[in-house]
């Protein structure tokens, strides 16, 4: 089935925006294409697209760099390249753990982090970790403006992004890498049937004090809970200043049960099961992140076992 007419491979963001603009809404950005080509075949209504604008040859979108303790990941960096990055594995481990369970190798070899976020699923694996990393995204709007936004602001609803992929472009992500006493972890629950979306995913970032025995800060993203990804702020608050031990974990679990209200998704999970899984995931991810923060050693778990 013919899904598009022209195929462009611009080498700069400006050129890409110009292409999009010249097709006046009837072209789309393509990064990995692993979601887009399926959407175009099976969910797309309306006329065939005039063009696809391939962003994988834009240097600033395919770079993965470190500067002053910050990591910049281009929107067109593939899952495989994130998984293979020793820098991200050691200092933003959750992102390797989440990108490492997306699809199989063939999909990870082309699928991009930008595509994952632009797809705007409330529990995209990469998204969940980026939220815990408090990432920001730089957007090139169709009108020529460039703007840094907190990641969560890109999400408007399930599958609905603030970006219009026929006009706007998600250029890069940036987040602060873990320093001493800081670490992350990502875990998720799947089921062997139906679509390969997580029953529930959970990414945590923790910061311990100098003794490495007490939390001084935490960021937790568990999803899907709402229609857009969000931090579990009450659970985070419960950790502040508390000792990093089992008692605190129990309190966090209790508050998570009280404050997070997952819903039932057809053929995926009941609300009751997800409620149990909040507990299962916190019990796995939080102690793992604490251990990593305490030892300063972080090796990604479960890569490729998604």
């Amino acid at each position: 089935m013919q899904l598009w007419q022209d195929y462009h491979t611009p080498t700069s963001v400006e050129e890409a925006i110009q292409h999009l603009s010249s097709y006046a809404g009837n072209s789309r950005i393509i990064a990995g294409g692993t979601d887009l080509l399926i959407d175009l075949q099976f969910n797309h209504e309306g006329p065939m697209l005039d063009a696809l604008i391939d962003v994988t040859a834009i240097p600033e979108m395919t770079r993965l760099t470190e500067e002053n303790g910050w990591c910049t990941v281009g929107g067109a960096v593939t899952h495989t390249n994130i998984v293979k990055s020793a820098l991200i594995e050691s200092k933003a481990t959750c992102l390797v753990e989440s990108c490492g369970v997306v699809g199989g190798p063939q999909v990870r070899n082309v699928g991009t982090l930008g595509g994952n976020v632009a797809h705007a699923l409330p529990a995209g694996d990469g998204t969940t970790s980026l939220v815990a990393l408090d990432a920001e995204a730089e957007v090139a709007w169709g009108d020529g403006r460039r703007e840094w936004l907190p990641l969560v602001q890109l999400f408007k609803g399930p599958g609905v992004s603030a970006l219009d992929s026929s006009r706007d472009l998600l250029v890069v992500f940036r987040f602060k890498l873990c320093g001493d006493g800081e670490a992350t972890a990502f875990k998720r629950i799947m089921r062997p049937q139906g679509v390969a979306l997580p029953v529930l995913g959970c990414a945590v970032w923790v910061k311990l004090d100098e003794s490495k025995q007490n939390y001084t800060a935490a960021r937790i993203c568990i999803g899907p809970i709402a229609s857009v990804p969000a931090r579990a702020s009450e659970v985070e608050l419960a950790l502040y200043g508390q000792p990093a031990n089992d008692d605190t974990l129990e309190k966090a679990v209790k508050i998570a049960h009280e404050t997070l209200h997952p819903r039932t998704s057809k053929y995926r999970a009941t609300a009751e099961y997800r409620d149990h899984m909040i507990e299962t995931l916190l019990r796995q991810a939080l102690p793992l992140a604490v251990k990593r923060a305490q030892t300063g050693v972080a090796q990604a778990e479960g890569v490729g076992m998604g």
């Binding site: 195929y7 491979t9 393509i30 294409g33 692993t34 080509l37 399926i38 696809l52 391939d54 994988t56 495989t80 190798p105 063939q106 999909v107 070899n109 082309v110």
Partner: peptide, 15 residues
Amino acid sequence: GTPINSCIYPAFRAQ
């Protein structure tokens, strides 16, 4: 050298 699914890989990406 990288394995990919050719069914959803635009041919012109392989230029």
